[in-house]
Write a protein that binds this DNA or RNA. Sequence first.
RNA 1: GGGCCCGUGGCGGAACGGCAGACGCAGCGGACUUAAAAUCCGCGGGAGGGUCAAACCUCCAUGUGGGUUCGAAUCCCACCGGGCCCACCA
Length: 998
Amino acid sequence: MSSTTAASSPTGATPPSDVPPFRYTGALAGQIETRWQAHWDERGTFITPNPGEPGFDGSKPKFYCMDMFPYPSGAGLHVGHPEGYTATDIVCRYKRMKGYRVLHPMGWDAFGLPAEQYAIQTGVHPALTTRRAIDTFRRQLKRFGFSYDWSREIATIDPDYYKWTQWIWLRAYNAWYDAESRRARPISDLIAQLEGGDARVSMFGEIVHIGERANLLGAGGMAFEPVGTQRWHELSAKDQRRFIDEQRLAYLAEVTVNWCPKLGTVLANEEVIDGKSERGGFPVYRRPLRQWMFRITAYADRLLADLETLDWPESTRKLQTDWIGRSEGAEIDFPLVIDGAQAAGMIDELTVFTTRPDTVFGATYMVVAPEHPLVEQVLAVPPPAEGGADVAGIRRYVEAARNRADVERMAEAKQKTGVFLGVYVTNPATRAKIPVWTADYVLTGYGTGAIMAVPGQDQRDWDFAKAFGLPIIRTVRPPEGFEGETFTGDGPAMNSGFLDGLHVAEAKKKIVDWLEKEGLGRRRVNYKLRDWLFSRQRYWGEPFPIVYDADGNHYPVAESALPVTLPALEDYTPPESDDPVPLLSKATGWVDTTAGEAGVSPELLPPETPVRRETNTMPGWAGSCWYYLRYCDPKNAERFCSRDAERAWMLGKRSAGRDADQHAQFVPGVHHLGGVDLYIGGSEHAVLHLLYARFWHKILFDLGEVSTPEPFGKLFHQGMITSYAYQRGDKTLVPTDQVEEIEEGVFREKATRTAVTQVVAKMSKALKNVVNPDDVIGDVGADTFRLYEMYMGPLEATKPWSTRDMVGMFRFLQRAWRLAVDEQTGEPRLAREPSLAVERQLHKTVAKVEHDIERLALNTAIAALIEFVNTATKEAEARGTHGGGVLTKDQLERLALVLAPFAPHMAEELWSRLGHDQTLAYHAWPVVDAALAKDDTVEIPVQVNGKLRHKITVPAGADARLMEGAAMADERVKAAIKGKTVRKVIVVPGRLVNIVVS
RNA sequence: GGGCCCGUGGCGGAACGGCAGACGCAGCGGACUUAAAAUCCGCGGGAGGGUCAAACCUCCAUGUGGGUUCGAAUCCCACCGGGCCCACCA
C-alpha cells in the first residue's frame, strides 16, 4: 500500500476471508481492468481504419479527438496528465457509441532540453533516455484504459517522423508570400514572374508588379515603369540570389537574438519571460546573430482574422489577438536636417510608426532604438558636434544597451536612459527642427524602430523629457482640473494648427489625409508579432536540411535525400564560448561533407563540392506543429500524410455552434473549416504551440497540401490539478509531511508546533504533495481514478487533489457493481419486471449524461449516474430484493452502456457478464424516450412579491392559466395575499408563478 | 502599469435571470459486528418559533455596497480579497 493514499483506503489491504468473492475491491478492479486492457490490445478494439482499408465506413461522420501529446520526462506521468486524457477518452467512447468514426491517437513530443541536459551529465545518448521515458509513459497510459489507436503512435524523434518535419520546413524554404494574392506560393512562381518581366525589384528589395498599383515605399501610387526599380536581368547572379533568399518564408537573417549562455542557446521571444529563460529562469542577453527565421509576420492578418472562425476559449483567442497585436496608425517621415556632406545611400529621413498621428504637432524630439541604422551612421560619419553630441558617449551607451541582460533593462525600466545623437529632423507639421536621441526604451523590432516623442500625450516620452529637460507641448486639452502628467484621453486638439478643436478620431483622420496628400506619411497597420526565430544551438532537435558552400551560400538537401539524421556525439557538453556555438559543430565528421553525400541536387552543386552542414537545430516546437496530420497516416513513406487520409480526418462539416456537429457528414471535396474536432490541452500553450501550428498549417494550406485553413476547429483547456499545501504566518510554505492536523481543519507544523493554514498550491517535490498515479491505480483501480479526476469539478477549473475524496467514487462503482452482480456467485442480478420509476429515472439519466458529455460537463454527468445508482439501490431496498435484482437485463445493459465512457472496464465486465461476447465499445448508445424522461406532474414554486411562499403540483404540460388558477386556489397562497391587491401575476410555464401584490 | 478570470456550507462543487447548496468528501446518529474496518440506512447553512418527536412557520444567508428587474449567486457599477496572463509595442 502506498503512502499517498490514507490508511482509510477502502480496498488497499488484503481482503479478510469473509469478504464475498465477487465484491468490487481494489484487487478485483485491478484484475478486471488488466484483463480488459489485454483484451482490447489483443483484439485491436480501438484500431481505426483509414480510407481504403477494410472496415472504413465513409458514411459515418468523423470525429477527430486529440490530446496535446506529452513530453515524456523521466519522472513518469503526474496526475495532471490523465485529466485531459480522461476527458477526451470519455468523449471518444461516447462518440463511437453514437455512430461516429473516431480518430483518437497518442504520441510523444520527444525532442527537448531535459534529455540533452541529462546527456551532458551522464554521456548517455538522449535517444536512449527518451526511449525509456516513452516506454514508461506508454505503460502508464495503457493502465488507464484509454481507447487510443496505439497503432498510430508517433514520436517526433523518429527519423521517419522528422523526415517530414524537415520536408515541411523545405516547403517553406522554397516558398514566398505573395502579398498580392495574400498567400504563400512556390518560389519558382516568383522567379518565373521576375524572369518574364511581370515584376521588378525595387531599390528597397521589394517586389513591384508591373501593371498593378505599385506598392513601393514612397512611390505615391505611381503606376507602370516605377522609378528606382530594376529589371531582373539587370541584376547580378549574386544579387538575384540574395533577393530570392530574402523572399523565402524560411529565411536566414542577421537578427538580434535572445542569447541564454546558461542554456547555451538562443530563444524565441515567446520563450523569454521577464528577461529570463522560460525554462530554468536564466538571464538572457541580446546578440546579433545570423539565424533561420520564419516569416510568420506575413500571416499576421490571417492568423488574426481566422481566430473568429474557431470554437476556442475566448481567453485564448484574446491572448493570440494580443500577441499578434494589430494596431492602426500612420507612418510619418521626418526629413533629416543635413548640415554636412551627405554621401549617396546615407539615411536622409527618419520614418516612424505612430498610433497617434494627431499628436504630431507635439513631437518635440525623436528617439531611435540603439540598433537603428541611423546610430551606425552617426558612429561612422559623426555629425558636427553641435548641441553636445558625444560620439564616444553614444558608442558607450549603445554597447551597454546591447550587452545588458534584459532583466537588468527591465529592472531599470522606470529610469529612462538615452543619449543625443547630434542630429536633427524637421517636424513635417510644425517645420520645427527637433533633436534625435537614441534610448533603449524604443524597441528595434516594433514599427520602424524609431518614434516621434510626444511627451504631452505619452507617459514614457514624458518621463524621458523630464529626465533630459526636453520641451513638452500638450496637443489634447485635458479636462478641467486635470492634474496628471500625460493626458491620454479624448479631448479637443490644441497647439496643433489646423487640427485645433478636433477630437482625437477626427484629428487622426484629418492629419493622415493631409500627410498622404503632402507625401509625408501614410496610413499603416502595424503588428506586434515578429518573425519567428527558428534556430537553436542545441543537440537534441531536428537538423536543418541545409548545407553551405565555401562562400557561405546555402543549399537545400533534396527531398529524396531526407531525413538528415542526427549524428551521435561522444560528448554533449556545450562548447566553451561566450557566443552562441551550436553543439552539432562538434560532430566534425558529419558537418564537413560533400554536396553529393549530403544529398544536394547536382543541378544546384556538383556532387564533389565540399560543403558544411547547418549545425543549428530546430526548436522544440517544430515537431508539434504538424503531428495531428501525421496521426492521420502515420506510416506513410511517400508523403507526410496521404491526401485521402487527410481529407478523411481533417475535412468535416462544422457549424459555429458548440454542439452543432452532431450530424456532420463526410463529403469528399467539399470545403469546410474543419480540422481536429476536439483538441484538449493546457492553456500554457495558448500562444506558442497553438500559434505556431496554425502558421505551419496555413503554409501547407496555401501550398495545396492540406484542405482546411485551420488545424484545430475546437479547442478546450483543462484546468490545473493543484494540491493542498500549508502556509506559515510569513507566507512561506511548509512541506506536507511536516504538518499534522490537530483537529478538524486546524493544522500545525510538527517541529515548531506553530499553526499553519491550509492553502492550495502547485504540486511540487519540494512540498512533498505530489501524487503518483500508479499508486492510486494500484489501490482503487483506473476506473475510480478516472471518475475521481472528472468528478473533482468543472474540467476547465483549477482544482485541488484530495485523496480522501476518492473513496466516494469507489463506493459509487461498488454500488453499481452490486446492483448488477451477485457478490457471492458473480452471476448477474436480474429483475423480472421493470419498475416504472426506475425506468423513468434511467431515461432521465441517459438524457442528462448525453447532454453533459456534449458540453464537457463531466462532473455533473457523473453526478447523474450516481443519482441513478442511488435511486435503483433504494428501490432494491424497498422491494427487499436482496437476493434478486431490481433492474432487468435490458436496464442493466443500458446502465453498462452509459457507464462505459467513464468506467470502461467495469462496463465491459458487466456487459460480458450479461452474456455478450462482443465489446460494447461500438454498441449503439441507449435511446432516450422523451416522454419517459419527463415527469407527469411537476412541483411549481409560488412566489408572492418574489418570495417563495408555497409549492403547487400541476400536470407537466400545464399552461399559464392552469398554473395561475392552481396557485390562486391554494390555501396558503390565499392566506399570503389576503387583504392585498393583486397587481400582476407572472407565470413561467413549467417553472414558477409570481404574484405581485401591494 | 494594462488585460482577463474567480469569490456559494467544514471541504470539492450544483444551480437556461425563477425552489440556493444537486452530487461527493468530512461530520453526527443508527443497523450489522464480541469489536473494529468495510457495507447499508438516516440527518445535515444560520437564528428563532412550533412539536413528545416530526411535519410545519418566520427571519437572515452566495466577499462588501449600490443599481436594473415582478424576481439576482447569475446582469450592470464601485470597492475588498484571490488567481492567471501580458508588460517601455509608440
